[in-house]
Computed example of a mutant assay.
Amino acid sequence: MEYFFNFEKMKYVKGKKYPGCILCSIVEKRDDVVNLCIWEDEDFLVSVNLYPYNPGHLFIFPRRHLTDIRELTGKQEAKLDRITRSCLNLLDAVYAPSGYNIGYNMGLTAGASIDHIHRHIIPRYPRETGIADLLAGKRVLVESPKVSCERLKKVLSELTTPFA
C-alpha cells in the first residue's frame, strides 16, 4: 500500500492560531475575522468554510460555544438536522455535487482545529483529486470561498422558506 503525505498539515495544526474562538468571533460579528456566514437564526449559523476542501464546503455551528455534540439539546439536534437538509438542498441547487461528507471533528487528535463544535458539509465530485493534491500535498480550489458565499447567498435569497 502506498501513502501520500501532506507535509504542511503539521505546520497548520501546530501553527499560530487566532486568539480566542474564531466561530464565537463570527457570532459576535467582529471586524477582525472573515465572515462568510450565509444564514443565521437565534440558535445556529451556516457559513462557507474559509479553507474549504471543495466549493460549497459549509460549517453549521451553534451560537453558544460548545465543544461536544452531546451538549446540544434534543430540540437543537432536531433543528440542526433540519438545517443540514436545507443546506443539502441549497448545495444541490447551486453545485449539483454527486455526494457529500457530513460530520464533526471533536478534539485536536480527531482533526479539529476549532474547538467550537461545528458540522461540516463537504460536497464531493467525481474525479476531484488532481496531481497537485497527490504530489504536492496541496488542494487546487476551483472557486474562492468568497465567491461560494455570494453564490449561495444569492440562491438562498430567492427561496421563500430557505431553512424551515
Rank of each mutant, 00 (worst) to 15 (best):
A164S: 04
S113K: 09
R127E: 10
D43P: 02
E8N: 15
G99L: 12
Y51E: 00
V34E: 15
S86G: 08
G20S: 05
Q76L: 14
R139L: 14
R127D: 15
V155E: 05
K9S: 10
P123T: 02
V140N: 11
Y125E: 12
K29A: 05
D81W: 05
D41S: 14
Y95Q: 03
S157Y: 00
P145N: 08
D133V: 02
Y125L: 12
A112S: 09
K29W: 01
R30F: 08
E40W: 08
F5H: 10
V147D: 13
P126A: 05
L50F: 07
I102D: 06
P19G: 10
H65F: 11
N89E: 14
K9G: 01
Y51M: 02
P145D: 07
K138W: 01
H118V: 05
I60C: 07
G103W: 01
S86T: 00
R30P: 13
K138L: 09
K79M: 05
L58S: 09
S144Q: 04
L88W: 03
Y125N: 13
Y3A: 08
L156C: 13
K29E: 11
G111Y: 06
T73Q: 02
P55A: 03
K9H: 06
P55T: 02
P52D: 08
F5V: 15
D41N: 15
P126E: 09
S157F: 01
C21M: 07
I122P: 07
T160D: 07
G111W: 03
I102Y: 07
L36H: 12
H118M: 10
R119G: 01
C149W: 01
T109V: 14
H57C: 03
I117Q: 09
I22Q: 08
K154I: 00
Y18S: 11
T109R: 12
S148K: 03
R85K: 15
R70Q: 10
G130Q: 02
E71K: 13
L36Y: 12
N35L: 00
H57G: 03
K17E: 12
D81R: 10
I26P: 06
R70T: 10
S98P: 01
